[in-house]
Design a protein around this nucleic acid. Structure first.
Length: 263
DNA sequence: GGCAATGTTAGCCG
DNA sequence: TCGGCTAACATTGC
């Protein structure tokens, strides 16, 4: 699940559960998700550290502690962050537990173990080190236009490149381009002013609506493409058939009738 | 058994 | 250097 809306929901969960609280430590059940740290070092760094706040940049989530190091979470393809009470049993695939006061725990759950848990000295430095572009919701319309016009890549390839803009993944990029009636394969630089305007508005509309839906697709509007990600499914607008294509090894879905040639 | 799955990244090619 | 593609990572489910 973890694209921007999912990670934003995890951030809110982290914020509500942990902000202002002092962690009691961390239990690591599967060290494979640790990045650049050890179970021992993680536990030692977090025990007695107070959570001052939270930050999200693209798909990366940070717990900002009252002093360095801070906690960095990345959720890969299947990561989740779950709040558990003292008596709750761990869900399957729980890899790390962050211990809160009163026996509560925040659980880093990750079936496929492509996620990462690590420590960073400085959040901005970490964002820079991963070469992340600006968070997609922090871009204003002019900056988005400049990014598009300066790129030689296709629209979808550009929007999913975290080094260009951070936060959009496979599913929501397809959704935004469908809502904005833009061809995923069109060169980004070819977008008209009107196309840039639609892309900007739909990016915000889709992502903000998805966050309000708690990143739960079942709670998102019927008219959204994400309910129709299947070859020859019917277009939610009734315009024709959904078709799939491949970009950078990922499967994308679009409605040629709505999006073809739309720039 | 085969194939694809919300992400990232290294390596190859033109 | 850039953009595109593939494979690999690890695991599950259709």
């Amino acid at each position: 699940m973890p694209e921007l809306p999912d990670v934003e929901v995890y951030r809110q969960r982290l914020q509500n559960a942990a902000r202002g609280r002092t962690l009691q430590g961390a239990r690591v059940y599967d060290g494979q998700v640790l990045a650049g740290t050890s179970a021992r070092a993680l536990d030692r760094a977090l025990r007695g550290a107070r959570v001052a706040g939270t930050r999200r940049h693209g798909k990366a989530l940070y717990a900002v502690m009252h002093r360095a190091p801070h906690l960095r979470l990345h959720f890969g393809m299947t990561g989740d962050l779950v709040l558990a009470g003292a008596d709750d049993r761990d869900p399957g695939h729980t890899r790390v537990a962050f211990l809160l006061p009163a026996g509560r725990r925040l659980l880093f759950v990750d079936q496929r173990k492509l996620g990462e848990v690590g420590l960073v000295d400085d959040v901005d430095d970490d964002v820079a080190q991963h070469d992340l572009g600006p968070d997609v919701l922090d871009l204003d319309a002019a900056a988005l236009a400049a990014l598009l016009r300066g790129s030689g890549a296709g629209l979808k390839a550009l929007l999913t490149d975290q080094q260009q803009v951070a936060g959009l993944g496979n599913i929501y990029t397809d959704e935004v381009l469908f809502q904005a009636r833009l061809d995923p394969r069109a060169p980004a630089a070819a977008l008209s002013d009107a196309g840039v305007g639609r892309l900007f508005r739909q990016t915000h509309r889709v992502l903000e609506r998805a966050v309000r839906a708690d990143a739960d697709p079942a709670a998102m509007p019927r008219g959204w493409l994400l309910h129709h990600r299947e070859d020859s499914a019917s277009c939610p607008r009734g315009n024709g058939e959904i078709r799939s294509f491949s970009v950078g090894g990922r499967r994308g879905y679009w409605c040629p009738a709505c999006q073809e040639g739309g720039t």
